[in-house]
Amino acid sequence: MTSQGNTALKTTQDAPQSDIAVSVRNVSKIYGGAIHALNDMTLDFPRGQLTSLLGPSGCGKTTLLKIIGGLLDQTSGEILVNGKPVDGPGPDRAFVFQDFALMPWATVIRNVAFGLELRGIAKSEREAVAEKYIAAVGLSGFEKQYPHELSGGMRQRVGLARALSVNADVLLLDEPFSAVDEQTRRKFQEDLLALVEHEKKTFIFVTHSIEEAVYVSDQIALLLARPSRVSEIIKPDIDRSISPDALRRDPVYLDTVERIWSSLRSYVE
């Protein structure tokens, strides 16, 4: 019943499909003429993979994500999404906000369907799509609730469902799990892996947590502050066919976490 809704939403993909979904080329951002948030950053995001941006507070992760999302203009440099330069927000990218950014006066289903509402999709059609993603994030039965009636974890699921329902190629997630407890967080991370698997989308994921980055990422970009730059690209070579619990005890997993730790520590000192 929702397939019809989805074809209507399919973003135009006339550009030839390369392996790189998002390409950041020599991007700098200077706030107010003085604060160098990003300095000549170059970074590629492979299609269909999850890339984490990992780094200390204030190193420009949110800034980079907002520039990719078209919410912020870079001072110099270029962002390419599917080969086309970014000039403002577009249907090929969807944002998941750190503070959820839900509308408190709207029900769960209206919040989830809001991206489609802004695209002028008819109510019945957009609610059918929203319904599908509400179920996908495990919130069936909460459609008519308001955000203040939900827990923090549930609110972030609403934010995630909203981003999924516009069927963008690239999902931009700014520390989506930072406001939830450790248990919920682990559950979310597993769900996120399943999503990457099924949705065939490119995920760009900002996090503070080394363990989280190693656990969910195909690729980790280690960012360092002042001036912000990519210090290292790490591809955790983890066998995901084993169970989540076994994975967290996997030597490769633990080694990668340790390696990033020592990398960050050497820069701090």
Binding site: K66, G69, G70, L71, P89, G90, P91, R93, A94, F95, F97, D99, A101, L102, M103, P104, W105, F114, G115, E117, L118, R119, R162, V166
Partner: peptide, 28 residues
């Protein structure tokens, strides 16, 4: 709140939609 205005922009709301669907209900 800045973040819901940014949300409106990122999901391709026009300036008028952002005023009528986000700013006014939020300010009501």
């Amino acid at each position: 709140p800045t973040s819901i205005k940014e949300m409106g922009r990122s999901f391709l709301g026009s300036p008028m939609e952002i005023i009528f669907k986000i700013i006014l209900p939020s300010a009501a």
